[in-house]
């Protein structure tokens, strides 16, 4: 029992430190949101990639950056209804 508790605690610690660490009951919504947020953060973080997308979209780099961070708020749409 103590072992299980420790494992849970360790997992919780990991989840607190590293955003996106999953758990046994992760939902499709959580998982896809996490992936999408990681992707957007990467697009914004790589200067070359951001410029590449900006030129493709025909927008200024700063505009595209703002849009990408904005999309990180809810990247894959509304969360599903909670069923009890």
């Amino acid at each position: 029992m103590a072992d299980k508790l420790r494992t849970t605690q360790q997992l919780e610690q990991l989840q607190a430190r590293y955003v996106g660490t999953g758990h046994a009951d992760v939902t499709r919504f959580e998982w896809t949101s996490n992936i999408a947020r990681d992707s957007y953060a990467s697009y914004v973080g790589h200067p070359g990639l951001l410029s590449y997308m900006a030129v493709g979209m025909g927008e200024a780099r700063e505009v595209v950056r703002g849009r990408m961070v904005e999309k990180m708020i809810q990247p894959v749409g509304k969360p599903p209804e909670v069923q009890d």
């Binding site: 590293y18 955003v19 996106g20 990681d38 953060a41 990467s42 914004v44 973080g45 790589h46």
Partner: peptide, 8 residues
Amino acid sequence: IRRVIPGQ
């Protein structure tokens, strides 16, 4: 370059 690693 990660979502939660400072540097941005």
